[in-house]
């Protein structure tokens, strides 16, 4: 009887649900606090489901690879890919170090710089809605991950951790419309600074560039480190389009160095950038 009444009053139910959702949205929009409790709880629970789904899918995939007799080749390939990934990351790190030491030499000031501490993570799920470019990785707060930690791939910058749960974390990709990173043109004659923002369609846009800056198509864009999230000197991408109106830049489009469509493993940078490192140290 009650269900019958409910069906007859579909319009009232519709309005009641809409009102409830509007109140829910209003509460969040007004609050300035961090991650909503509901988001963290649902994400934490569903991350376990995603981990299970991912484990089943990868288990079937691995069993099939072994079945067709490519197990050894597959293992070799995985090992070599891992080694290549580590080497590429080390190369980027060395390049960033070399770049930095050039500047420091010029200032006749040599400092010891520790290498970045990272942890490898596997992508276990894509974003829940096509409007947000996020992925879920299989490492979380229990493995030392925190909000705003940089996530890298051997090819370059991937994004940042936005919601760490127990054993998983949500990563906002750099191509998301709400993502941004401090950037600098790597070419020594240019060194133009700006901010790279996501466009949501797989490309990046470089903004806040001085009109006297020298930027040409093909320039490599690297992180500047000023955002306090991404370490300095890591590759973001390559300038693809430069449009100018008079002396001012109308649009600078950057093709990301990372192929986000085929990303499987990433490295999370556990070492905070220099600015934040000092801020995190406990005061005596």
């Amino acid at each position: 009887m009650a269900i019958l009444d409910l069906r007859q009053r579909a319009g009232y139910l519709f309005l009641a649900v809409l009102l409830g959702l509007v109140i829910l949205i209003s509460a969040q929009v007004n609050s300035k606090s961090g991650v909503p409790v509901l988001e963290a709880a649902v994400f934490g629970v569903f991350a376990e489901v995603q981990r299970g789904t991912s484990a089943v899918v990868s288990g079937i995939s691995r069993a099939w690879s072994g079945y067709v007799g490519l197990r050894q080749v597959h293992a070799d390939n995985e090992r070599l890919r891992q080694r290549l990934a580590e080497t590429q990351l080390a190369l980027q790190e060395q390049r960033a170090l070399a770049d930095r030491s050039h500047g420091l030499e010029r200032l006749l000031e040599l400092r010891h710089r520790t290498s970045l501490r990272t942890t490898g993570a596997e992508i276990i799920a894509a974003g829940a809605t096509p409007d947000f470019r996020t992925v879920t990785i299989d490492k979380g707060a229990r493995q030392g991950l925190m909000t705003d930690m940089a996530v890298m791939a051997p090819a370059g910058v991937v994004g940042r951790v936005i919601v760490p749960s127990g054993n998983a974390a949500k990563v906002q990709l750099l191509i998301d419309r709400n993502a941004a990173a401090g950037a600098v043109i790597e070419r020594r004659e240019s060194r133009a600074q700006g901010v790279v923002v996501g466009t949501g369609n797989g490309r990046l846009r470089m903004e806040y560039v001085s009109e006297i800056a020298d930027i040409v198509v093909g320039d490599v864009v690297v992180t500047s480190g000023i955002d306090g999230i991404y370490p300095k000197g890591f590759v973001i991408g390559r300038v693809e389009v430069v449009e100018k109106i008079g002396p001012a830049y109308k649009q600078i489009l950057v093709r990301p160095a990372v192929d986000f469509s085929s990303l499987e493993e990433v490295l999370v940078v556990l070492t905070p950038p220099e600015g934040r490192e000092a801020a995190r140290e406990p005061t005596p």
Binding site: L6, R7, A10, L13, F14, V17, L18, L21, V22, L24, I25, Q28, V29, P36, L38, E39, A41, V42, F43, F46, G127, A128, T129, D131, F132, T134, I162, V163, K170, Q172, D176, N178
Partner: peptide
């Protein structure tokens, strides 16, 4: 009725898994 309840439930869960405001997808 079933349509709107399914929409509310599915939208809210999808919102919670995405990084946006919870309720907009639900609405």
């Amino acid at each position: 009725v079933t349509g709107l309840l399914t929409g509310t439930l599915a939208g809210l869960v999808q919102d919670a898994l995405a990084s946006g405001v919870i309720g907009i997808g639900g609405l």
